[in-house]
Amino acid sequence: MQCSYFDAGRCRSCTLMGSPYTEQLAGKQSHCQALLSDHAALEWLEPIASQESAFRNKAKMVVSGTARNPTIGILDADGHGIDLRKCGVCSPGLRAVFPVVAHFIRLHRITPYDVPHRSGELKHIIVTESPDGDIMLRLVLRTDQLVPRIRKHLPDLLAELPQVKVVSVNLHPEHKAVLEGDREILLTEQSTLNMRVNGINLHLRPQSFFQTNSGMAAALYRQGRDWVNELAPGSVWDLYCGVGGFALHSAAPGRTVTGIEFSSEAIASARLSSDEAGLQGMQFEAGDATAFALAAEQSPDLVIVNPPRRGIGEELCGWLEASDVRHVVYSSCNAQSLARDLAALPSFTARRARVLDMFPQTTHYEVMVLLERAG
């Protein structure tokens, strides 16, 4: 893939841009194998490739410039906007939204936030596209001052972009390097974006997490489902379950599945998906994954973990070591923290691993490992 923004030095976010894709994928496989080289029994499955471009289903874009001439993209080192509306890793559905939003900003005099001067209102737009082509649009504002104006003129935006189903305003009053704030104001009747994956309808609320590559998310959940069904556990925990992707794919007659996620928004989405599908034996609870495990009276047969980049940590590793859990399916977006966690689980043997290229054109990737208790 070639990118004019990268070639011109305007954006270097995709650090592998221009490298042959086969080399990118082979490099990620080699990197992961080197980090997990201590696990001699590990069988490496073929890595799963992504499409090279237009794979992102979510864009977090900085709004800068002026109300008359807004930029949608990133900031340079001095805090000035660089427009990236034609970014080639974003899906065509995302790219179709950017110019319409820019026109909306101009037409209704919505002042972008000026980082160097700490003034203005609109900080970011966060756009997500479902596999069916529907859109969620979130506007991150410094205050609620412009909410009435946006609400008043929103029908015009929706008429021009009928694929936009969910619109919200996020309030982020602080001047710091955090993308969004805690308060969300929903502006549409529909509150969730339907993310249909492998025939399962996942519901994404504005502040919930979903993988940024829908094709790779589907492959990730299929791999987890296949390993779980092969082992046929009677009980499964999905820790860090998000909107319930792994948990819902693990549902089966006679099996109990419990999903734990800190975000109450994500748990509400997971419950809705489970109820709609009429699944039995499903339970979702909001809370800390490690605290839940430590307080539990019984261990499940199998645990799925899909933690943030920091990994599951020493405390949860210690609980797994002392538990009766027979198998762990570990999905990681950071092979370095994965390697550290596996070293803290000497009672488990890493049996299989698979790299999934969730983030082409960058050094990042997802890797799944199947662990089995030794002996």
Rank of each mutant, 00 (worst) to 15 (best):
C11I: 09
C11H: 06
T15M: 13
P20G: 01
T22D: 06
G27R: 13
Q29W: 12
H31R: 03
C32W: 05
L35P: 07
L35M: 06
H39C: 11
A41L: 08
W44M: 11
L45W: 02
P47R: 07
Q51I: 15
N57G: 13
K58E: 06
K60F: 12
M61V: 15
M61T: 13
V63E: 00
T71E: 12
L75C: 03
G79P: 12
V89Q: 06
S91M: 04
R95L: 02
P99Y: 11
V101W: 04
R106E: 14
P112Y: 04
P112T: 05
Y113C: 05
R118Y: 01
S119C: 10
G120T: 02
E129I: 04
R138C: 01
T143A: 09
K165W: 00
V166P: 06
V169S: 00
L171S: 05
H172A: 12
L186H: 11
Q190M: 12
T192K: 11
M195A: 12
N201T: 08
H203V: 00
S208V: 00
N213S: 03
S214T: 01
G215H: 12
G215F: 01
R225S: 09
G242A: 01
G245K: 07
F246G: 05
T256D: 05
G259N: 06
I260G: 02
I260P: 00
S264H: 13
S264Y: 07
S273R: 08
S273C: 15
E276Q: 15
G278R: 15
G278W: 14
L279K: 00
M282A: 06
M282T: 08
A286E: 14
T290M: 08
A291I: 15
A291L: 12
A293Q: 11
Q298S: 06
S299T: 09
D301E: 13
L302G: 09
V305P: 00
N306H: 14
P307M: 08
R310T: 10
R310G: 14
G311Q: 01
E314L: 03
E315M: 03
A322R: 10
V328F: 09
S337G: 03
L338W: 07
L345V: 04
R354K: 10
D357R: 14
Y365M: 02
V369F: 15
V369W: 14
R373T: 05
A374C: 15
G375D: 04
